[in-house]
């Protein structure tokens, strides 16, 4: 069955008689174009050139990877096959729990009207119909016929037309739920200031409060340091006290220990500044302990990032931005 073999043309739609050689020539041309080849004798032919460009663009543009064909969007169909697989194959998908769907073979046996494929499609794949077969359900009446099916009653129930659309809807809901599970997971690890933070606040209120307290405690410590730098130990103390108060509501797993360390270091710095006070505006407490006026004991980082925080807050140590949120 050669591609170029010319059969007797049927002039079923033609008025004029077309010369066979003309038909053959076009057939050869088309076969060449289908391979992306420009036959020599057509090198000046504008149409052939255009068609080749057109073909080349279509065929050379890479087909997008749609992460395989088995995506959530296909759950309804997948559910159907999942049930068939329970009979024929070890299950490869968990989604089968969704679908006590029909055995395709049984359906075919009982479908007398399966006809030429194309006309049948007209009704089946309508626009926006996620489960086009839903309306065609009642065709198979006897689920009992199938010898491989032990769960007659349940499968029959699932095959009834009324339950089919709910099945599709359920599958869609599962797809949505799977999607939102991902966002939930992301939200549970979100840090203050991130886009998912408002969700995180709802998802885990305790954690959110703890993280926010930690944020503002660090801010207060930051302010305290700044005040120490300006030798204003008094307001530095205020900030420190505020920070300590906030730190109370920070959970241990949210970097409490680091916060405490930070508190101690700032405290030491204030004490040192107070000790060697040189600033006349602040009332020095008189006692003299540390001679150095501007010591930098530890933690030179201005925005301490909680690196020892919880496992849930693993990612984005960079994100905690000092936004006053509490």
């Amino acid at each position: 069955m050669s591609r170029h073999h010319l059969e007797t043309p049927e002039f079923d739609e033609g008025e004029e008689i077309i010369d066979e050689s003309v038909l053959l020539r076009d057939d050869v041309l088309i076969a060449a174009m289908a391979k992306g080849v420009l036959p020599m004798e057509y090198s000046e032919d504008e149409l052939v050139h255009d068609m080749l460009v057109w073909r080349d663009e279509i065929c050379s543009t890479p087909i997008p990877e749609n992460v395989g064909v088995f995506t959530e969007a296909m759950l309804p169909g997948e559910a159907k096959f999942a049930e068939a697989q329970t009979q024929l194959l070890p299950p490869l998908l968990d989604i089968k729990t969704l679908g006590a769907a029909k055995n395709p073979r049984a359906a075919d046996v009982e479908e007398p009207d399966v006809d030429v494929a194309i006309p049948r499609q007209k009704g089946e794949v309508g626009p926006g119909d996620a489960a086009p077969h839903a309306e065609r359900g009642p065709r198979k009446k006897s689920g009992t016929k199938d010898k491989t099916r032990p769960r007659t009653t349940s499968t029959r129930a699932a095959r009834s037309p009324r339950l089919k659309r709910p099945l599709a809807i359920a599958a869609a809901m599962v797809a949505i739920a799977l999607g939102s599970l991902g966002s939930m997971a992301a939200a549970t690890t979100a840090q203050p200031g991130s886009a998912l933070w408002p969700i995180a606040k709802v998802v885990d209120k305790e954690r959110a409060e703890s993280l926010e307290a930690r944020e503002s405690a660090f801010e207060q410590l930051e302010d305290a340091r700044a005040q120490v730098e300006k030798n204003d130990t008094e307001s530095a103390r205020e900030h420190l006290d505020e920070a300590i108060a906030r730190a109370d509501s920070v959970r241990g797993k949210d970097g409490k220990s680091e916060l405490d360390k930070e508190v101690k270091s700032v405290e030491a710095r204030i004490a040192a500044a107070e000790g060697g006070a040189t600033n006349p505006t602040t009332g020095p407490s008189g006692s003299s302990s540390a001679p150095s006026p501007t010591p930098t004991p530890s933690t030179p980082t201005p925005t301490p990032s909680p690196s020892d925080s919880t496992p849930s807050a693993t990612a984005t140590p960079s994100s905690p931005s000092p936004t006053k949120s509490s």
């Binding site: 296909m74 169909g77 395709p104 030429v116 194309i118 499609q121 089946e124 794949v125 086009p132 077969h133």
Partner: peptide
Amino acid sequence: AVLNALPRYEDQGRPFAAYVFG
């Protein structure tokens, strides 16, 4: 759509591709 319709496909002697192109 092809995936969804597969269980109801019956070989009618026409190529499967015709079904798909329909």
